[in-house]
C-alpha cells in the first residue's frame, strides 16, 4: 500500500510539474474575475429581481456563497470539462506518443497498476480543480460582498430556489462542491478510457469532449425524456440536488452509484484496450 502511495505521489508530482496542468486554474481565475467585475460594474439587478421575487431581502442573500455558486455551477461543466479531458486524454496517449510509456513499462510494474496510478492522478486533478474553482469563486465573492449573509441556492434546471442562513448555506455549498467534484470524475474517466486507445492525445481529448457535449445536448432534448437515465450528464445533476431544502437522497445515491459504475466501466475498458496493445514504435 505504501509503495502504491509512493508511485501515485510520483505521478502527481509529474503532473504538477507540467505547465499545461495549470492552464485550467488560470482560465477559471480569469473567468471568475471577469464575471465578478461585470456584476460589480453593471450592478446586481438580475440577482435583486430573483431574490426579491421570492419575498426575501436582497442585501441579506447577495453574499459570497450566492455569487460563488452561480459562477461555479455555470462554468465547471463546460470549461472544467475541457481541462479535465485535456489532462486525462494526455495521461496515457501523450506518454505513449512521447516514448515515456516504454521507459515506465521497462520497470517491474504491471500495466494494471500503472494505469490505476495514472487514473487516480486524473481523479485527484479533477477534485483539486473543482475545489479550486469552488473556493476561488467563494474568495472572489467575499471580496465583493464581504463576510456573512445568507445563501440563495438557485439551480433553475432542477427547480431549486432555496434560502439558507450563513451556517447552513456554507454546509450546502461545501456539499455541492464535493458532489460536483465527484460527478466530474466521469468526464475524466471518459478521457482516460480514450487515452488508452491507440490514438493521438488530441483525438482522445476531442473524443471525450464530444461524448460529453453529445450527452449534454441529448439531455436537453425533449424526446430523450424517457431515456435520460442513460445519459451521464443527467446523473451529474445529483451534485445540484444536494442544494435542495430536502434533498431526494435515494435519487442522489442512485445517480452517484450509476456514475461510479460508469467510471469503473470506463477504467476497465481502457485497461482492457491498453493491456492488449503492443507498445512498440
Amino acid at each position: 500500500m505504501f509503495l502504491f502511495f509512493q508511485q501515485w505521489r510520483a505521478e502527481c508530482l509529474k503532473l504538477l510539474a507540467r505547465k499545461r496542468t495549470y492552464l485550467g486554474f488560470g482560465a477559471f481565475l480569469a473567468l471568475e474575475a471577469a464575471v465578478l467585475a461585470l456584476v460589480h460594474i453593471k450592478g446586481a439587478t438580475h440577482f435583486k429581481t430573483l431574490i426579491t421575487r421570492q419575498g426575501q431581502v436582497f442585501d441579506e442573500y447577495y453574499s459570497a456563497p450566492t455569487l460563488a455558486l452561480i459562477l461555479f455551477m455555470a462554468s465547471v461543466f463546460l470549461l472544467g470539462g475541457i481541462y479535465m479531458t485535456l489532462v486525462s486524454g494526455d495521461i496515457v496517449a501523450k506518454e505513449n506518443e512521447d516514448g515515456h510509456m516504454r521507459m515506465l513499462l521497462a520497470r517491474p510494474i504491471s500495466r494494471f497498476r500503472l494505469l490505476l496510478v495514472k487514473y487516480l492522478t486524473c481523479v485527484a486533478y479533477t477534485v483539486l480543480l473543482v475545489q479550486f474553482i469552488a473556493w476561488s469563486a467563494f474568495l472572489m465573492g467575499l471580496a465583493v460582498t464581504g463576510w456573512g449573509g445568507g445563501f440563495f441556492a438557485f439551480v433553475p434546471e432542477l427547480g431549486i430556489a432555496a434560502f439558507y442562513d450563513w451556517q447552513t448555506g456554507m454546509g450546502k455549498y461545501i456539499a455541492a462542491s464535493v458532489s460536483l467534484s465527484l460527478s466530474m470524475i466521469t468526464v475524466t474517466s471518459i478521457g482516460f478510457m480514450l487515452s488508452c486507445m491507440p490514438i493521438k492525445p488530441a483525438a482522445a481529448t476531442i473524443g471525450a469532449l464530444s461524448y460529453m457535449l453529445i450527452d449534454f445536448i441529448l439531455r436537453n432534448m425533449g424526446f430523450m425524456e424517457d431515456y435520460k437515465h442513460l445519459l451521464f450528464t443527467h446523473h451529474m445533476q445529483a451534485a445540484g440536488r444536494v442544494l435542495a431544502e430536502e434533498p431526494a437522497w435515494p435519487v442522489i445515491i442512485r445517480s452517484f452509484a450509476v456514475l461510479g459504475a460508469m467510471n469503473l466501466t470506463f477504467f476497465l475498458i481502457g485497461f482492457g484496450i491498453f493491456d492488449s496493445r503492443d507498445l512498440k514504435s
Binding site: L3, Q6, Q7, R9, A10, E11, L13, K14, A17, R18, K19, D98, G99, H100, R102, M103, L104, A106, R107, P108, I109, L114, K280, S281
Partner: peptide, 30 residues
Amino acid sequence: RQIGAIYEAAAFYDYLTGWQNLKALCSLSG
C-alpha cells in the same frame, strides 16, 4: 526485477530534472 533496460530511444520528462526523472522511474520499481 532482474533487469534494467534501455528500450528504443530514451524518453525522459523534459520538464523534470535528471534526478527527479530517476526518482520517478525508480518509484515504479519500489
